[in-house]
Simulated scan of single mutants.
Amino acid sequence: MFHPSDFPEPTMVPVNGIELEVFEAGAEHAGRPIVLLHGWPEHAFSWRHQIPALVEAGYHVIVPNQRGYGNSSVPADVGAYDIEHLAGDLVGLLDHYGYDDATFIGHDWGAMVVWWMTLLHPQRVKQIVALSMAYMDRGDQPWVEAMEQMLGSDFYFVDFNRRPGVADAVLDDNPSRFLGNLFRQNVPLAPPEPGNAMVNLATSDTAPGDPIMSDDELDVFVRAFETSGFGGGINWYRNVDRNWHLLADADPIIRQPALMITGTRDMVAGNPRLTEFVPHVTEAALDCGHWIMDEQPDATNHLILTWLTSTNA
Rank of each mutant, 00 (worst) to 15 (best):
D266I: 02
P175K: 03
R265A: 15
P188L: 02
F221I: 06
D205A: 07
D168A: 14
V220L: 05
N243I: 04
T203E: 15
V222R: 06
E193P: 10
N161C: 14
L286K: 11
P188I: 04
L171Q: 07
R242E: 11
G263H: 09
V281C: 08
Q256C: 08
A258Q: 07
R223I: 01
G229T: 12
A197C: 10
A207T: 03
P279K: 00
D154R: 01
L182R: 04
A258S: 15
S176M: 11
R238E: 06
D205T: 13
I254P: 08
L201D: 07
L246C: 03
G209V: 10
N271A: 00
D173V: 01
P272R: 13
P279L: 03
T275L: 13
D159Y: 06
T282G: 13
P211K: 00
M267N: 10
A258H: 14
A250N: 10
F221M: 09
Q296E: 15
P194W: 09
D241I: 08
C288K: 02
N243E: 11
R177E: 03
G270H: 14
L259A: 08
T203C: 13
A285F: 12
V166G: 00
E217K: 02
F160S: 11
S153H: 12
F160E: 07
P194Y: 00
T275K: 15
M267P: 08
G229P: 06
D287M: 02
F225R: 00
D249C: 08
D266A: 09
W244G: 02
I234F: 10
T206Q: 15
D215R: 00
H290T: 02
P279A: 04
S176G: 07
S153D: 07
D154S: 05
